[in-house]
Amino acid sequence: MPIEPLPSTGISKVLGLCEILDDHQGKEDVYRLAQDLHMPFGELLLVIKGAEMLGMVETPGGDAVLTPLGKRALESSMNEKKALLRQAMLKLKVFQHVLKLLENAQENEVPAEVILEELAVLLPQEQPRQLFTTLLNWGRYGEIFGYSRDTDQFYLQKPEKTP
């Protein structure tokens, strides 16, 4: 199965989308949604794509429909929500790939350049910089990996703290 690229959108937007769909009894026409939100159609599509990949939304026939998982995320506490999203992200090929790379690396960290090159090889059609940013933002939210600009290192987040 080919690896799917991440759409360049943020988790806050995905969660906002779920919230809006919930307001509309869980289902709304995508085109109407764009109009209601005064949002560029293309940008909304990216958000929907992201939500779909995470299993929060489905898109049968021009509609966006909130899934039970999406509904559950809305009703959970902050930490449960993050855990749910983390699970969802870990099901994605890109994340699994980068995760394996980090697990095999010395001290579980690699220079950011290695990740960039890896992404360029995995998904030659995509812009590696943009993909890198999205991957990092999602990964940080799900506490899967992190990056330090001071050392320019990409690293695996250790699941140490439990609040």
């Binding site: 806050s12 937007k13 939210y141 990056y147 330090s148 600009r149």
Partner: peptide
């Protein structure tokens, strides 16, 4: 940081974050 859902972003600089973050 944990309460607002930012954990995992401690080491990030503002310019690396989206507006919501």
């Amino acid at each position: 940081i944990d309460k607002v859902g930012l954990d995992g972003n401690e080491e990030a600089y503002p310019r690396e974050l989206s507006g919501g973050m």
